[in-house]
Amino acid sequence: MLMLAASLMLTAACPADAGSLLKPRDSAPAILPVNDAFQLQPVLWRDSKLDISLDIAPGCYLYRDKIQVEVLEPTGFKLGRVALPPGELHQDEHFGVVRVFRQQLAVQHRVDHPPQRLRIRYQGCAEGLVCYPPQVREVTVESLR
């Protein structure tokens, strides 16, 4: 009985880790899962500014023109145009010269009151390896008054 209880404790302690350890071995192990390639940080509102940031893994990039921020709640909330940094130029064989973000995308958008929920879209690639499908995340804004 005690053995069973201990085994259950063990398996319940780290189910996520066990899952990741048993991920398929792929012929291209350097390719990251999308949530590791692009890590959306908690969205914060403080001092009348909305902070949105995405950490971008080395070798990966996000397309500037694929990034969108919209307010889900409250309805009718006027966010205004979210100004993105210029990013850097990237010569793409098929899409020509495009602007991309590497390492980190950090946006500070001035807005007097915090929205409650946002929908954030982004899309990017691992340089010369793969591209990830467009990502959509719905997040609750943490208001630090």
Partner: peptide
């Protein structure tokens, strides 16, 4: 068909 990364091409 075995994908767990959701990345293309596959």
């Amino acid at each position: 068909l075995g994908d767990q990364l959701g990345a293309l091409p596959y």
